[in-house]
C-alpha cells in the first residue's frame, strides 16, 4: 500500500502523453507540476472556486477535484489549448479582451474554460442560463458584469453569423 506509481495515457491540448504518476495526484497537479501548464490555477483546493476549471471530453470540470488517474484515456483542454499556436485568440478570448472582462486574471482561465464548454453545449443560452452556469466560477475583482457581457456578446455574434 505504498501508492506506487501507475501509468496513464492522456491527451492534453492535442498532445498525447504517457505518464507515470502517483495515484493521489490530482488533474490539477498533473497539469501544473508534471506538464508545466500553469495557466490552470489553484485557489481554494476544496472544489468551491472554479479557478482550476479545465475541459475533459467536452465537459468543464474542476481539476483540483478529479484524480489524474480518472482522465486516463481522455482528452483534456486547459487554457493553453484555446488560442491557436500562431497566436489567434478564440472569439471568446477576443470578447474578454474587448469587454475588459478580467482584472487580476487569476480566475480568468477557469472562467474561460467554463464558458467555452458552456457555449459548446448550449447553442443559444439566455443571460440567466449563463449566470446560472457560471455559479461555479468565483471572481473577486470584476463583479462579473463585464465578463457576463463578453459571453453574451459571443452568443449574439454566433447568432448573427449563423443567419
Amino acid at each position: 500500500m505504498n501508492g506506487s506509481k501507475k501509468t496513464i495515457n492522456v491527451k492534453v491540448n492535442g498532445e498525447s502523453y504517457e505518464l507515470s504518476i502517483k495515484p493521489k495526484m490530482t488533474l490539477l497537479q498533473l497539469l501544473r507540476n508534471e506538464l508545466g501548464l500553469t495557466g490552470t490555477k489553484q485557489a481554494c483546493m476544496d472544489n468551491s472556486c472554479g479557478a482550476c476549471t479545465v475541459i475533459v471530453n467536452k465537459m468543464a470540470v474542476k481539476a483540483c477535484s478529479v484524480l489524474a488517474m480518472q482522465v486516463n484515456g481522455k482528452e483534456v483542454t486547459s487554457v493553453e489549448g484555446l488560442a491557436s499556436r500562431d497566436g489567434k485568440l478564440t472569439p471568446l478570448q477576443e470578447a474578454f479582451l474587448e469587454h475588459s472582462a478580467f482584472q487580476c486574471g487569476f480566475c480568468t482561465p477557469g472562467k474561460l474554460m467554463s464558458s467555452t464548454a458552456m457555449l459548446e453545449e448550449m447553442s443559444d443560452p439566455t443571460e440567466e442560463d449563463v449566470r446560472r452556469d457560471m455559479e461555479g466560477n468565483l471572481c473577486r475583482c470584476t463583479g462579473y458584469v463585464q465578463y457576463l457581457a463578453a459571453i453574451m456578446a459571443v452568443v449574439r455574434q454566433r447568432k448573427e453569423g449563423s443567419k
Partner: peptide, 15 residues
C-alpha cells in the same frame, strides 16, 4: 483593451 490581456487570457501570465 488591457495590455496584460493576451497573457492573462492564454495562461501565459506568470503569477
Amino acid at each position: 483593451p488591457r495590455v496584460d490581456g493576451k497573457a492573462k487570457l492564454t495562461g501565459k501570465a506568470k503569477f
